[in-house]
Design a protein around this nucleic acid. Structure first.
Lengths: 119, 119
DNA sequence: GTGTGACCCCTTGCGTTACAAGGGGAAGGT
DNA sequence: ACCTTCCCCTTGTAACGCAAGGGGTCACAC
């Protein structure tokens, strides 16, 4: 599904959600980078096309923070691939951040829905 | 309500929503900067405390882009205050950005709610 | 065999922007 | 005299998404 779909265009929207999406993609089993980007593209219905120049630095950051671990392996296509897996800390971090993200977006959504001046 | 409420702690969450909130606060009538920050604090139930070092540069950026206009005036407390008002372009920008923000957060929320591996 | 495209990894440089940490000044109350 | 609230502003600093590069392997078509 590598269609030429328009990408996000607005880095500020994406900011901070990439870690969330990456960690979420690793919830069930280790994935290599390419598979992570495919997962994200799929679950967002193609509305989020993750650039490689974004993905790999993000993965490295998460590894440095101890939220993911990596191991070289072989992909389904018999290619050299680095598999990332969620650590226990990463799982906790994902839960906490997802919760605070939800809370924050809810607050903003409520603010944007306000209809009377200065409630 | 200037209670010492813990602030956002995570710039990445806020990223990109500040413009939205600021513009939204100006929907009904011109406000000066201080009032904008109060509005945001109120409608987010104190969960978002806008720093002045964030607010004013943001207002200047929006003015430079033509989304708001400013005019010196007097506050309710008879103090010198710069009132910002939404321009027509600003109103359109707010609508568009709010829509794309909603779409994006919905996509992410859906992704974070996924329960089966690789749907 | 020589593309061509999918698969897979990576880095550098740039621009944007939230925040901390400073600054100043005027009004009102104690 | 002093403090608090109200109001405005600027200068770092750090983070990070992205564009634009890099490289290598495999399968299939021509």
């Amino acid at each position: 599904m590598t269609a030429t779909i328009p990408m996000t265009q607005n880095p500020n929207l994406v900011r901070g959600t990439l870690d969330l999406l990456i960690l979420k993609s690793l919830t069930w089993e280790p994935l290599h980078g390419y598979a992570v980007s495919e997962w994200i593209e799929n679950v967002t219905d193609g509305s989020l096309l993750m650039e490689e120049g974004t993905l790999y630095p993000a993965l490295h950051r998460l590894a440095e923070k101890g939220f993911v671990e990596s191991e070289w392996g072989l992909s389904e296509n018999n290619r050299r691939a680095k598999y990332y897996s969620l650590t226990r800390e990463g799982r906790g971090y994902l839960e906490r951040e997802a919760a605070s993200w939800a809370a924050y977006t809810n607050a903003v959504a409520k603010a944007l829905a306000v209809e009377s001046p200065i409630p």
